[in-house]
Write a protein that binds this DNA or RNA. Structure first.
Ligand code: SF4
Ligand code: SF4
Lengths: 163, 163
DNA sequence: GGTAATGTGGATATGATATATCCACATTAT
DNA sequence: ATAATGTGGATATATCATATCCACATTACC
């Protein structure tokens, strides 16, 4: 089981944008350079985040991306779902209905105990991700002493944000 | 993010074997027929479960597979890890070290807060899977009235188990 | 001891999916 | 009008899951 690479990208992108001033945007080219990511594919991730309502896009010469709402209102689950979709990792193919002991389909009104257990575990995982917001992380970073990498990020932002 | 098909197979295989008497074995061909699965690939799953110590294999004409320990000692996590491996779903490629604000590698002694958060969520998922054993499921099934599909499974087992 | 039935492991083929790229078009500041 | 940007679709490539095959080891039975 593997999460797509775009999840890491999405989390970092949103973290960076969380340090920018509200309403200011950063264009895709600058974001790609910041993380040394392939621009064409990065655009796909940005579009997915926009469609999911995590980011806002602004077209035009001074356009770019910004958070769609405040950092404390964006959870890790929001970003994960935006990039990965919200399908369950465990997909049931109903093999219990196959083979010599298979019964008619109407005998299976609900998910079995096996699937219920695995899906409950996935829910526990989602609950954990939903409990952490971008603000929780940025707040933890800025509280650290001495100043770390995020200071460099903020300095970089002053040169790549637009009104 | 998708879990491999083999997880569903592995869970069902172990569930079925949990209904068999201890020490009795079921051969791979019968297991494949029971679930209508492709025999050659099913063997791979069985071998993975054996390597992981979930199943025991017996060679020879009356050989086959059986649980390596009692059903209450085999958790869903055991089966999942056996089939999927124990790598994290979220893989960090350290993109924070890249780009204009990247620092020397020795500046990153530990995982960042982003990775720590995601991995903690995965741990919550594992904890849940580790909390459910095969016995928990079979016990729940046999307690149900009226008798369900597992009765058919037990009958089938009487014809396909070996000493 | 010979034979047949079974499991094991490696190599390999196939298919699905993630990753990456490109292009025609819509939007908007200047 | 122009240029810079984001959007969406189509497509190529790489990677991995799925599926298959074969030579060999093990063991019950004759
Ligand atoms: S019995 Fe459960 S796990 Fe198996 S195929 Fe049906 S729903 Fe899925
Ligand atoms: S900052 Fe965190 S998530 Fe990003 S690459 Fe480093 S460890 Fe991974």
């Amino acid at each position: 089981m593997k999460a797509s690479q775009g999840v890491e990208w999405g989390l970092h992108l949103c973290m960076l944008l969380a340090f920018a001033e509200p309403h200011q945007t950063v264009d895709a080219t600058s974001l790609a350079e910041y993380h040394e990511l392939p621009l064409p594919y990065l655009r796909k991730i940005l579009q997915a985040l926009t469609r999911a309502g995590v980011l806002e896009s602004v077209a035009g010469p001074t356009g770019g991306y910004r958070l769609a709402r405040s950092a404390d209102q964006i959870t890790f689950l929001d970003i994960f779902s935006a990039v990965e979709g919200d399908q369950n990792a465990f997909r049931c193919t109903e093999i219990r209905q196959k083979g010599p002991t298979g019964l008619d389909q109407k005998c299976y009104p609900a998910a079995c105990a096996i699937a219920a257990t695995v899906w409950a575990a996935e829910q526990a995982w989602r609950d954990h991700l939903a409990g952490v917001s971008l603000f929780d992380i940025t707040d933890g970073l800025t509280a650290l002493a001495p100043p770390g990498q995020h200071e460099l990020a903020i300095t970089w932002l002053t040169k790549h944000t637009r009104a």
